[in-house]
Amino acid sequence: MRLFVLQLFRFIGLFSVLYILFFLFVLPRLMVISQGPNIKDQVDQSFKNALNRDYDILVLGNSRTYRGINPDLIEIPTYNFSLDNDTYNQLYYKLKYLKTNNKKFKALILGMDYFQFSFISDTRNYAYASYFDSDYLNDYPSKNYVLLYHLRKLKPNRAEGLRFPRKNRPYLKQNGQFYREGKATPNDRANRDISRKEIQVKYFENILNYCAENNIKVFLLFLPTRENEMKSYTDNQIKEFHNFLDQYLTENVFLLNFTNDTTYSIDDFADITHLTPKAADRFSKQLNDTIMAIYLSSFTPSILNEGINNSEKFINSY
């Protein structure tokens, strides 16, 4: 009996040591080789470039804008400050971060998703906490997010993302867009929640108020969305959602809704929700035309009609 328990402890002990060493030190490096920069590196690079680069338009949003907008294809200097899984509270603190660092811009492209109000993301807190005001964490339960981050590294399913290094390895561009290839399949599914948490509505309004105070134009942007994802919502829910959004639309807040743009097919998606880099480029050009039309209409009335004609089907359409 004693021998059995002793052997078992030896076996488990040796395995645990190997496991911890591998998951803490080897796997993160392998993941970088296989999957590109980790989230912490992405956050650091993204925040650094947000201060170092010059731009007039800022893009904020979640992974859909992070991957789906290529600032290089927008005629006005633009920076993509989005990140996977960002929610409005985090986007608001990003604006505050830029303000604290005296970074100014003239327009904001704010990524919109029907599910975007339904949760409060905490998966980046270990990284964001060092960039944001201390009150950022007041919206979250008191936890040691850095310790949790390291513990999370030990979760067995972290190894799932490990693949053989690919030719087109994901990477973060200097302009803030995340490049990631992929191929959507007809069976991709997503369960989305269209409900709105009060806290996210509050931060969404904070963002709009901030922009109004600083004379920043806001483009509320819905990117092209797959039918499979839209199945999560009913027509009534979408109608109600837009009724909600309508109250925020002003002469400086525009709604650009590309959700049902039929020119995007399954081949343009990398998975259930993200555009491929190629489709992102196409979309960015399209977005550029639309924004330019609005921008120019603000200053040059003669071009207004032409610009609007090109883009009217996307502006405020739903």
Partner: peptide
């Protein structure tokens, strides 16, 4: 033997 057991355990962890 232990190497085999570890290999199976690792397979379980990686390919669950």
């Amino acid at each position: 033997r232990w190497s085999i057991y570890y290999a199976i355990l690792i397979t379980i962890i990686f390919f669950a």
